[in-house]
C-alpha cells in the first residue's frame, strides 16, 4: 500500500468543496483526491498517487518512465484487479 503509481490527470472537479479528479493510469481510470496538490495543477499534468490521493506532481517523462518500470516489474497487476474489486465494493455486495 506504499507503492505510489504515476498517472495523468484527465479531469478536475469539485465534490462539495473537495478537489477531486480522474486520473488515467495507462488506460485504467480512477477517482483521485487532488486536494494535496498545488492549486495550479491542470488537466494533462502527471502526479504520483497513493491509495486514491495524489501526493506529488511529477513531469511527464518521469511519470512515463516510472510507469514502464512498474509494468516491467509486474507491479501494476494489482491496479486492474483492484479497480474491479473496488468498484464492486462501492456498488454493494461482497467483493471477491
Amino acid at each position: 500500500m506504499c507503492l505510489g503509481i504515476p498517472g495523468r490527470i484527465v479531469e478536475i472537479k469539485d465534490d462539495t468543496g473537495l478537489r477531486m479528479g480522474t486520473v488515467d493510469f495507462g488506460g485504467v481510470r480512477r477517482d483521485v483526491c487532488l486536494a494535496y496538490l498545488d492549486e495550479d495543477i491542470q488537466v494533462g499534468d502527471y502526479a504520483i498517487v497513493h491509495v486514491g490521493f495524489a501526493i506529488s506532481k511529477v513531469d511527464e517523462d518521469e511519470a512515463k518512465r516510472t510507469f514502464e518500470i512498474l509494468k516491467e516489474m509486474s507491479e501494476l497487476d494489482e491496479l486492474e484487479w483492484l479497480g474491479d474489486v473496488a468498484d464492486r465494493s462501492l456498488e454493494g455486495g461482497t467483493a471477491s
Binding site: L82, A86, G92
Partner: peptide, 14 residues
Amino acid sequence: DVRIVYSPLDALEI
C-alpha cells in the same frame, strides 16, 4: 460484509 477499497474515501462513500 468485508470489502476491499481502493481509497479510504471509497469507504466513506459506502
